[in-house]
Design a protein around this nucleic acid. Structure first.
Lengths: 158, 158
DNA sequence: ATTTACGGGACTCCTTTGGTCCGATATCCT
DNA sequence: AGGATATCGGACCAAAGGAGTCCCGTAAAT
């Protein structure tokens, strides 16, 4: 259906919550679940994933909870997606050689690579910080040719 | 997994085949299946869908088969995706009001709308004709600000 | 020691997807 | 007319992925 999974969507919402209330103190799963109006087990699972992938840091024990591992402006949407559902690959072949058995006969591999790169870059450029403020009407997730030098790396699942 | 479905991928491949050999004559499912190295029943199913959605025209009978309903340069990738797996909506909320029950409390609806629009536009701008030739290295699926006037409408499933 | 929280699983249910198959209908050719 | 070859329109099924729950272990604070 060409959709990010619901879990990933939840994850972004949770991270946005944390980004907004980025005091140093950890926020526990129960609290985040209540704020986001989501079932606790689901929220727990997502937070665990995000911690494992290095987007969150966790603190155990009575006053424990979760906090962002980095500043919101250094966390990209593509990273979040990659953390929760694997690297961004619109088609199998964009995952790398050997994934699609039509590789040798398919003429569309190269176009797909480019499409995937463009969309991946777009989501890689979009940060959590930007999500917490309304995007400007003319927002485009692409560099003007000048600033092409510096690129945010695409999140790739380990 | 943030992927277009395999069926959609196949569909694009099949359409690309038809775009390349766009003589007036219809091409039957058996022939296309052989060219694309895919099982016939699958190809049949896809072609039927695409016909139903208006991207292909069909001809029954002994010399029957399928042909593009429009010129390749007037068929967009987003249309193909929309035809085979519904309108492009990265999240539930971008499908329109009433789909996500978090609507009233979620602060991310507006950013997602914008993201979805940008990606949808990108795929709406990319045509079948372009797919059959290698994309230029600097291809970006976005208008320069000047040509912003004319927009390819996003494919939306009926 | 008790309480509170995360850590790491396993596990189940449900929807979607990928794929097959069949009878009906239209067209062409002999 | 009649057979051959297509598409048409379904139903159907198995496998995979997604969503969600639950349990037990461990760490930290009081």
């Amino acid at each position: 259906m060409f959709r990010i999974s619901r879990l990933t969507d939840y994850g972004i919402v949770l991270l946005a919550h944390l980004a907004r209330e980025a005091d140093g103190a950890p926020h526990n799963a129960r609290e985040l679940a209540a704020q986001a109006n989501l079932p606790l087990p689901v929220v727990s699972k997502i937070l665990k994933h995000l911690t494992h992938q290095g987007l969150l840091v966790s603190q155990r024990g009575v006053k424990g909870g979760y906090g962002l591992a980095r500043e919101p402006r250094h966390i990209s949407v593509s990273e979040i997606i990659a953390a929760l559902e694997g690297p961004i690959a619109l088609t199998e072949c964009t995952l790398g050689p050997g994934h699609c058995d039509q590789e040798s006969v398919c003429a569309l591999r190269s176009p797909w690579q480019r499409i995937n790169q463009v969309i991946g870059d777009a989501l890689g450029r979009l940060t959590l910080a930007e999500l917490t403020h309304p995007l400007p009407e003319d927002w485009l997730p692409f560099p003007s040719p000048r600033e092409d030098a510096e690129r945010v790396p695409l999140g790739v699942k380990g």
